[in-house]
Amino acid sequence: MEYTTKGTCSRKILFEVEDGKVHNVQFVGGCNGNTQGVARLVEGMDVNEAISRMKGIDCNGRGTSCPDQLAKALEQAIQK
């Protein structure tokens, strides 16, 4: 899946959800080390657990962050 981010340095998030698990997360843009870390931490994680852990994380008062945007992307993916 592909999700276009809003309000973050990263422009896009690519990912897969298979059997309720998060896989192959890739951020386009953003803080490379941080986004790689987030991607590795959620690999294989239950999608609902990933959403609950990341939803609402704020980056410097922006009202969102790369992890929060990933949570929103995952929410969209499981609603389809």
Rank of each mutant, 00 (worst) to 15 (best):
M1T: 13
M1P: 08
E2F: 04
E2G: 11
Y3Q: 09
T4A: 09
T4G: 07
T4R: 15
T5K: 09
C9D: 11
C9L: 11
C9F: 11
S10P: 00
S10F: 05
S10A: 15
S10C: 11
K12D: 02
I13N: 02
I13L: 05
F15Q: 09
F15P: 02
F15L: 10
E16I: 01
V17R: 04
V17G: 07
E18G: 05
E18F: 06
E18M: 10
D19Y: 09
D19G: 08
G20Y: 07
G20M: 04
V22D: 07
V22P: 01
V22E: 08
V22H: 03
V22W: 01
H23D: 06
N24P: 05
V25L: 06
V25N: 06
V25T: 09
Q26C: 09
F27Y: 11
F27M: 09
V28N: 05
V28C: 08
V28L: 13
G29Q: 03
G29N: 02
G30Q: 10
G30S: 11
C31D: 14
N32P: 03
G33E: 13
G33P: 04
N34L: 12
T35N: 15
T35S: 12
T35M: 15
Q36T: 12
G37S: 15
G37I: 02
G37H: 11
V38P: 00
A39K: 05
A39T: 04
R40F: 11
R40S: 14
L41S: 13
L41H: 13
L41A: 15
L41N: 10
L41M: 15
V42G: 09
V42N: 08
V42P: 06
E43I: 03
G44K: 04
D46H: 08
D46Q: 12
D46W: 06
V47H: 04
V47M: 03
V47C: 07
N48R: 15
A50D: 12
A50L: 02
I51Y: 10
S52K: 14
R53K: 15
M54S: 08
K55P: 00
I57R: 06
I57Q: 12
D58P: 02
D58L: 05
C59K: 03
N60Q: 12
N60C: 12
N60L: 13
G61W: 03
G61K: 05
G61S: 09
G61C: 06
G63D: 09
G63K: 04
G63I: 00
T64R: 00
T64D: 01
S65H: 01
S65G: 06
S65T: 02
C66T: 00
C66V: 00
C66Q: 04
C66S: 09
P67Y: 11
D68S: 02
D68P: 00
Q69Y: 03
L70F: 06
L70T: 07
A71D: 06
K72D: 14
A73Q: 12
A73S: 13
L74I: 02
L74F: 07
L74C: 10
L74T: 06
E75L: 14
E75F: 04
E75G: 14
Q76V: 10
Q76C: 12
Q76S: 14
Q76W: 09
A77Q: 14
I78R: 12
I78C: 06
Q79V: 04
K80C: 07
